[in-house]
Design a protein around this nucleic acid. Structure first.
Length: 748
DNA sequence: AGCACGCCGACT
DNA sequence: GTCGGCGTGCTC
């Protein structure tokens, strides 16, 4: 009897190892023979392909894992191996390239392969569902419906409208319902024999008529022709809002589609707006699949399958879409590459931008990164000639960049945070029929509730943080753990009832502005007002009607949406970023200010930006305003080099948290000792900590971190690999919640 | 992470 | 006398 195939399986557990199994139905030789039992035929597994799903017994549970390899023998004694329960797939759901990418990511981010794989697969596949496309009923115009109808629909405009849509493309009833066309209208058309229902693959992709590409200006033309499509290169398209990055994406995609290949487009979490999608849909006569957080499990699976089968030519998605299987991938595009949402901030802490570069490299295809405010990492890669810089300096229609001025508010009387000057400027714009935008990066009414008599402040019981005062509805709220309670009317310490809201938030600015400008709508935009599904879109539509109004909100206003009728932007609290705990604070601030400035104005109506500041002389602010973002980034780069920080050095963070502060700290202290044994501290590898995290106590857990700073990537990994193996063995390692973050973006 | 086993406190 | 608290150990 030949030796059984040994199945090496990755399982969704945090254990950093793979598990060996026997083929399904295989009788372990040592097992007691039951001579009456029908010997189940052992499945021959020697030719199974890696990437298929396998159901296996695991402890007392049953899990679905992914076959990684088939081997001839196991390090484990055969009698300790269990037979797998079932092979779930004929062909791999995890294609070779995605499996390879997962393995690379597992090594680079030091995260268990089984969990990495879990994040790459749609939930329903993880749960064992078959990877099958579903069919749905769609409406199609009949020959009669396509013919000359005369006056048949003259008195049924709604039916006429529906028929026009259906003539252009197949649409399901639910898609039509979204366009405000309901069942009775469709029934009417069906009874007249103009449309019929047919079965078609379920699809969240859509095909519309293609439009002709715009003519590129010389600069755009140069940028596009610099892109080589038959081998790997990363390109940075650096250009302000309105400089035409999207048009280059579209034409690059067109070239790829001409070759019969697919394009993958990654956008920030809030970047997949109907406008963005609409622009792609109108340009290409090709199916587009979207993958974003708004999809349910089944929609997500269908989009994934459309991509994997090659049906979808273009996939647009957020971070996790970097793992979408695409059999003919021809280009990867990342819009707003500096955006934080490309880095996952918990669990498997990967950077979709960096993984996209790896993926492009393995496929020998170009990676296009676009941003007006590139991350220092990307800018540094351009300097070192690893990425090619393609600059777009012209603005469409000769629009001028907004004029930015710093307004010194030292010693100025402020009305709820606004200087007299700012209010006057807002009034001037409103009187001229224009719109104004007020940016304040803090939601709620005020960040603190304080006792005027004794100085007591309302604190979160679970976190090391003050509670934020909210007025709509009236309550106190912790933005770190979501603790909420009713408004406090009396000081806990001295029982005084003289409590004051201290500091500024969006709600307060909204109230102040409404008070000051009672005749003009004040529209607040923050997480609280845009929670509902279409809320943001409704606001954008309303504002873009062009009536005078004031927008007030958080960074949601700075990203994605453009408001052409806004001619004045007022930034209330720019100073915060200059002395934040995170060394990336100033970089973020510069990006945010540049982005928010980009919201204002258009060709025929130039915008202005006022930045209220107590630190007008700050050299970084001065550089940003007078010389622009690239010089600002250059200046930051110099500081990073001196401070031995990225992008000149490589960081990893070992985080630990526990309800018991001492335990979390003790774990990291042990970790540092072990680390020093593996790789003694030197210039090439330095340790910092363990130190308390910026918010030491969060959600009843105390958090600490050990920073590892290396001159060479390789050294970082040479340390981390054995270190993590030892930490897994540590008794404290099983009690304390700990994680590794390679290339951390947020130090919190 | 799950999940079970196991050994001590307050309830019907 | 049992229910249930979470400490500890294991998963091919």
């Amino acid at each position: 009897m030949s030796a059984p195939a040994i199945l090496v399986v990755a399982l969704p557990t945090p254990l950093r190892r793979l598990f060996d199994y026997l083929p399904p139905g295989y009788q372990p030789p040592g097992a007691a023979k039951d001579m009456f039992a029908q010997p189940a035929a052992a499945v021959d597994c020697h030719s199974l392909q890696p990437g298929v799903r396998i159901k296996v017994p695991f402890g007392r549970q049953e899990l679905i894992g992914i076959l990684i390899a088939v081997k001839g023998e196991s390090e484990f004694p055969l009698e300790q191996l269990k037979p797998a329960t079932e092979i779930l797939d004929q062909s791999p759901v995890l294609t070779e390239d995605i499996l390879e990418l997962s393995q690379w990511a597992s090594g680079y981010y030091h995260h268990p392969l089984g969990e990495v794989i879990s994040t790459t697969l749609p939930t329903l596949l993880r749960q064992g569902q078959a990877p099958e496309r579903q069919r749905e009923q769609v409406w199609q115009a009949t020959d009669k419906g396509r013919g000359e109808l005369g006056a048949l629909l003259k008195r049924a405009p709604k039916q006429q409208q529906a028929l026009d849509l259906i003539k252009h493309q197949y649409l399901s009833s639910s898609q039509l319902a979204a366009l405000d066309i309901n069942r009775p209208i469709l029934k009417g058309l069906q009874e007249k024999g103009l449309i019929e229902a047919i079965d078609r693959l379920e699809d969240n992709s859509q095909t519309l008529l293609a439009e002709t590409p715009l003519t590129l200006n010389e600069e755009q033309q140069q940028a596009l022709s610099a892109v080589e499509f038959d081998n790997y290169n990363s390109y940075l398209l650096r250009g302000a809002t309105g400089s035409g990055k999207t048009e280059i994406y579209l034409q690059a995609i067109a070239k790829v589609l001409e070759q019969g290949k697919q394009a993958l487009v990654l956008v920030p979490e809030i970047g997949l707006t109907p406008q963005t999608l609409g622009r792609f849909q109108h340009r290409f006569n090709a199916p587009i699949a979207t993958l974003h957080s708004g999809l349910n499990d089944s929609e997500r699976l269908q989009a994934w399958l459309a991509a994997q089968s090659g049906e979808a030519s273009i996939v647009i998605g957020t971070r996790s879409a970097v793992f979408t299987p695409l059999p003919n991938l021809g280009v990867i595009i990342i819009d707003e590459e500096h955006d934080l949402s490309f880095k996952q901030q918990d669990g498997f802490r990967y950077s979709a931008r960096d993984l996209a570069a790896i993926r492009a490299q393995k496929h020998h295809i170009p990676l296009l990164l676009g941003s007006a405010t590139p991350s220092l990492e990307t800018a540094h890669n351009c300097e070192r000639q690893r990425f090619k810089l393609l600059e777009l300096t012209q603005r469409a229609g000769n629009a001028k960049p907004p004029a930015i001025e710093l307004q010194d508010i030292r010693r100025q009387a402020l009305i709820e945070g606004f200087s007299q000057e700012s209010l006057e400027q807002i009034r001037t714009e409103l009187d001229a029929g224009n719109q104004a935008l007020v940016f304040i990066n803090r939601r709620g009414y005020a960040p603190t509730l304080m006792c005027h008599d004794c100085g007591w402040q309302a604190h979160c019981p679970n976190c090391d943080a003050r509670l934020t005062v909210h007025q709509h509805p009236r309550h106190l709220h912790c933005h770190h753990c979501d603790y909420q309670c009713g408004m406090v009317d009396q000081c806990y310490s001295c029982l005084s009832s003289d409590l004051t809201a201290v500091g500024l938030g969006t709600e307060r600015s909204e109230a102040a502005l409404q008070d000051e400008f009672p005749d003009v709508p004040v529209i607040r935009v923050d997480r609280d007002t845009t929670r509902r599904k279409d809320a943001m879109q409704n606001i954008v539509d309303e504002v873009n009607k062009g009536e005078p109004c004031i927008l007030v909100g958080t960074q949601m206003l700075a990203k994605g949406h453009h408001f052409p009728d806004v001619t004045l932007v007022v930034v209330l609290d720019a100073d915060g970023g200059l002395f934040s705990a995170d060394f990336r604070g100033p970089e973020r601030m510069g990006q945010l200010l540049t982005q928010v400035a980009g919201r204002a104005g258009r060709a025929e109506k130039p915008g202005r930006v006022i930045i209220q500041s107590h630190l007008c002389d700050h050299p970084l602010l001065q550089t940003l305003l007078h010389d622009g973002y690239p010089d600002f980034a250059q200046q930051l780069m110099g500081e990073r080099q001196i401070a031995h920080l990225p992008p000149y050095r490589y960081l990893a963070l070992l985080r630990a948290e526990d309800k018991n502060a001492h335990q979390a700290m003790a774990f990291l202290t042990q970790a540092r000792q072990l680390a020093e044994q593996i790789f003694p501290s030197s210039v090439s590898l330095q340790y910092l900590g363990p130190l308390p995290a910026p918010l030491e106590k969060r959600n009843e857990r105390f958090r600490y971190q050990l920073q590892i700073n290396a001159g060479q990537r390789q050294d970082l990994h040479r340390l981390l690999q054995p270190l993590i193996a030892q930490l897994d063995e540590l008794p404290l390692g099983r009690k304390v919640r700990w994680s590794v973050d390679v290339d951390p973006q947020d130090m919190a």
